[in-house]
Amino acid sequence: MDGWSRFTDTFFKPELIERYLPSIASGLVVTVEIALAVIVTGLTLGLLLAVVRTFRVSVLSFVIVIVVDAFRALPPLVLVLIVFFGLPNVGINVPSFAVLWIVLSFVLAAFAEEIFWAGILSVPKGQWEAARSTGLGFLGTLTHVILPQAIRLTVPPITNRALAITKNTALGTVIGVPEILNQASTGQSFAGNATPMMMGAIAYVLLFIPVVILGRWIETRFAWGRA
């Protein structure tokens, strides 16, 4: 057997591709579902926390900063394991899908809060003053003047965070969520061959292409003027 066919036999064996295609595809669906759920709740929560900080109530801001830092500092795997194995001990049974969704949402929210907050701070003070001087209230100014500018500045880092958190869905493997990595590694051990894992990798690439395109589209969508 020459090198080339040894290579294709290890990574791209046709009959294994055929056999594992359905399970990898279902893993892809699960990963997409978790990722979308996490991005929606994580970004919403992150934006909400950043908005709460604009009220500048020192106790609230302090709590937010502490919690956010904790979620940014801890490895997400540690959080997943704590929640998944800890909650049943206090009598709460949460399905593994929900554990992954909640934990990753909080992690994304923590990073997103910092990014949105930095965006809000970077909008010049004159924007607040101009809007307030026309009689617009605090919340009106925030929604119509400040946030549209702040969010536009944060599209690139938020897109990166959304990509990073999508990769973290692979942590679902350790608690039995049937996402891409789980299906691929199960396939790999059954088949004793790297083909299913290669298919998993390709599934991740397929998943990221639209996310990257979406990020670029949002960037142009939020651009204004022609300069």
Binding site: P124, G126, Q127, E129, A130, A131, S133, V145, P148, Q149, R152, W224, G225
Partner: peptide, 13 residues
Amino acid sequence: IGMVFQSFNLYPH
């Protein structure tokens, strides 16, 4: 009370 600023402060978006 209308106010006009040195730096215009138009909403860029």
